[in-house]
C-alpha cells in the first residue's frame, strides 16, 4: 500500500498554508512534527479528504483519492484536531452513528464498539452522555471512533492532546500493536508521542518539509551540536542571548543548561547525546512540550 502526496499546495487567500508538499507513506507509523501553525493540520485534512488542495493530488496506489471518493474514505479512520461530539448522545449511540456513517452493519458495529470501549477504557461510560466527558475521555472516544472500521489508513491530528501521561503510554502501545499492516499518520508538536514508535518523522515548517528521517538518523545528524553548560544567574543571560537554549535545571546557585550550538560554546561545555527534543529545538528554535 502506498499513499502519496503529490505537489500539494493549499492557499487561503494569499496565505500559503502548504507549499508544493510531496511525500510518500507506506505501512508503518509516521509522525508529522512541527510547531503550531506549520501546516500539519492542513496536510492531515487533505489526507482525510475533508479539504481539497488548491493544487496537486493525493494518490493511493496510483489512484487519485478524488476518483476513489467513498472507496478511499472507506479505508480511513480519522481523528480531527477539534474533535466534537453530539453532547446529548451517549458514547454508545455516538459510536453507533459514526459506525453507520462508515457503512458498518448493526451487528458488526455492536461487536466492534464493545471491543473499542474496552480498549479505550470507556466501557463503564458507555451509556453516559458525552456532554459530561472530560477532555481526555473525549479524546479516547475519538480514538475509538477512528478505529471502528478497522482502517487501513489511520490519520490522527494531535491524538494525545488532553490525555494524561498514563493514557499517552497506553495510546502509544495501542498504536504499535495495530500499526503492522496499516499506514498510521500522526501529527503532533509533542516529540515524545512519536519518538519511539514512528518509522519516519517528517519535520514541517511553514508548510514545507524541512527534513525527514527516522528519529535515529535525525538525532545522529545533530551529533556534536548539543552541549551541557554549567553557569550561574549572570552567565545564563549571556548564554540565552548567544545560543538556542533547551532545558534549564536550577540547583542552588548553579544552573545547568542544555544548548544547541554548531561549535563548542566554551571550554567547560560537555557534549551531550542528542535526543529528538534537541532535534526539535535545533530545527524549530523553540521547545517541544
Amino acid at each position: 500500500m502506498k499513499l502519496e502526496i503529490r505537489n500539494v499546495t493549499k492557499k487561503y487567500g494569499k496565505f500559503c498554508a502548504v507549499k508544493n508538499f510531496s511525500y510518500e507513506f507506506t505501512e508503518g507509523v509516521y509522525g508529522l512534527l512541527g510547531p503550531n501553525g506549520a501546516g500539519k493540520t492542513t496536510i492531515i485534512r487533505i489526507l482525510a479528504d475533508v479539504l481539497n488542495p488548491t493544487d496537486g493530488s493525493v494518490m493511493l496506489n496510483g489512484e487519485d483519492i478524488k476518483d476513489m471518493d467513498y472507496r478511499y474514505r472507506n479505508l480511513i479512520g480519522y481523528l480531527p484536531q477539534d474533535f466534537g461530539v453530539y453532547k446529548n448522545f451517549t458514547a454508545h449511540r455516538f459510536l453507533m452513528y459514526i459506525a453507520a456513517l462508515k457503512g458498518l452493519s448493526k451487528t458488526e458495529s455492536q461487536k466492534r464498539i464493545e471491543e473499542l470501549l474496552e480498549i479505550t477504557n470507556l466501557k463503564e461510560y458507555s451509556n453516559v452522555k458525552t456532554g459530561t466527558f472530560s477532555g481526555g475521555m473525549k479524546r479516547r472516544l475519538g480514538i475509538a471512533q477512528a478505529l471502528l472500521n478497522d482502517p487501513k489508513i489511520l490519520i490522527m491530528d494531535e491524538p494525545t492532546a488532553g490525555l494524561d501521561p498514563k493514557e499517552r503510554v497506553r495510546f502509544r502501545n495501542l498504536l504499535s500493536e495495530i500499526s503492522k499492516d496499516k499506514i498510521v499518520i500522526l501529527s503532533t508538536h509533542i516529540v515524545s508521542d512519536i519518538e519511539y514508535i514512528s518509522k519516519e518523522i517528517v519535520l514541517i515548517k511553514k508548510g514545507e518539509i524541512l527534513k525527514t528521517g527516522s528519529s535515529e538518523s535525525l538525532t545522529n545528524e545533530i551529533k556534536g551540536k548539543v552541549w551541557k553548560v554549567l553557569t550561574d544567574e549572570n552567565g545564563l543571560k549571556t548564554i540565552e542571548e548567544r545560543f538556542t537554549v533547551g532545558n534549564i535545571f536550577r540547583n542552588g546557585n548553579k544552573i545547568e543548561t542544555r544548548i544547541i550550538s554548531e561549535n563548542r560554546p566554551d571550554d567547560s561545555a560537555e557534549a551531550e547525546i542528542p535526543t529528538m527534543e534537541d532535534v526539535f529545538l535545533y530545527y524549530f528554535d523553540e521547545l517541544s512540550e
Binding site: D49, V50, Y70, Y78, L101
Partner: peptide, 14 residues
C-alpha cells in the same frame, strides 16, 4: 455547530 462535521465528512457516506 458541535464540531462533528469534519469527522462526518471523512466517513464513507458523504
Amino acid at each position: 455547530e458541535e464540531g462533528v462535521l469534519e469527522l462526518e465528512m471523512s466517513c464513507r457516506i458523504s
